[in-house]
C-alpha cells in the first residue's frame, strides 16, 4: 500500500512538472516503483521486464529524443477546465465500476477459476517446464507471442524508415513542409 501511494505521488509529479528532463527521470523512478509493486504481487517475470524495459530502454530513448528536440514544455494558452472535467468523469465512472469487482486477492474469483488452474496443473505433465509463465508464453499461447514478435519487428522497421533516411535534413524539411496541409 505504501508503494502504491508512492506511485500515485510520483504520477502527480509527472503531471505537474514542466521540465521534460525531470519528467523523464521521474518516469524511470515510476517504472522501478511499479516493478517493485509487481514483485510484491507475485509477478517476478513482469517485474523484471518492466525494470529493464520501462526504466532502461524507454528512458534512454526519451533522453535521446530530448537531445534532438528541446527540453522545456511551454505553458498552455487556454484554461484547462475541459480536460480536467473529462478525466474526473472518467475516473468517477471507473471507480463506480470497481465496486462490482470481486475483492482483491481471493482464490475463488472468476479470474482464478477459468484457464489459470489448467495451466498451473498441466504445465509439468504437458511440457516439463516448472515456470508456468514461460510455458504459457512459448507453448500454450505461442500465437500471442508470435504476434508480439512481429509487432517488434514492424516497430524496428518503422523506426529505421522514419530515422535512417533523409541524410540531407534541409531538403527533407522543405519537402515535408510542402506536403503538410
Amino acid at each position: 500500500m505504501v508503494l502504491l501511494t508512492l506511485l500515485a505521488v510520483v504520477a502527480i509529479g509527472i503531471v505537474r512538472l514542466r521540465n521534460l528532463f525531470a519528467v523523464v527521470i521521474l518516469g524511470a523512478v515510476y517504472s522501478f516503483l511499479i516493478a517493485t509493486v509487481f514483485l510484491v504481487l507475485d509477478a517476478p517475470d513482469v517485474a523484471m521486464t518492466e525494470a529493464a524495459v520501462g526504466a532502461g530502454i524507454a528512458t534512454v530513448m526519451m533522453l535521446a529524443v530530448l537531445h534532438l528536440t528541446k527540453t522545456d514544455e511551454s505553458r498552455p494558452r487556454q484554461p484547462q477546465i475541459f480536460p480536467l472535467f473529462v478525466s474526473a468523469v472518467t475516473g468517477a465512472a471507473l471507480i463506480y465500476g470497481t465496486l462490482d469487482l470481486p475483492p482483491f486477492g481471493e482464490a475463488d474469483t472468476p479470474v482464478h477459476t477459468h484457464v489459470g488452474p489448467y495451466y498451473l496443473s498441466q504445465s509439468i505433465p504437458d511440457t516439463g517446464v516448472p515456470n508456468v509463465v514461460a510455458s504459457v508464453l512459448a507453448s500454450y499461447r505461442g500465437w500471442d507471442t508470435l504476434g508480439e514478435v512481429v509487432v517488434i519487428f514492424t516497430a524496428a522497421i518503422g523506426v529505421l524508415l522514419l530515422l535512417r533516411r533523409a541524410q540531407r535534413p534541409t531538403r527533407q524539411a522543405t519537402r515535408s513542409r510542402r506536403d503538410a496541409p
Binding site: 530502454i57 534512454v60 530513448m61 535521446a64 529524443v65 534532438l68 511440457t127 517446464v129 514461460a134 510455458s135 512459448a138 507453448s139 505461442g142 507471442t145 514478435v149 517488434i152 519487428f153 516497430a155 524496428a156 523506426v159 529505421l160 522514419l162 530515422l163 535512417r164
Partner: peptide
Amino acid sequence: GIHLVEIGVLMAVTGAVIAIFYAF
C-alpha cells in the same frame, strides 16, 4: 520447441532494441 521459439524472441528483441537506439 519452447527453446527454439525463445531464441527467436531473444534475437528479435536484442536486434530491435539496438537498431532503435542506433537510429536515434
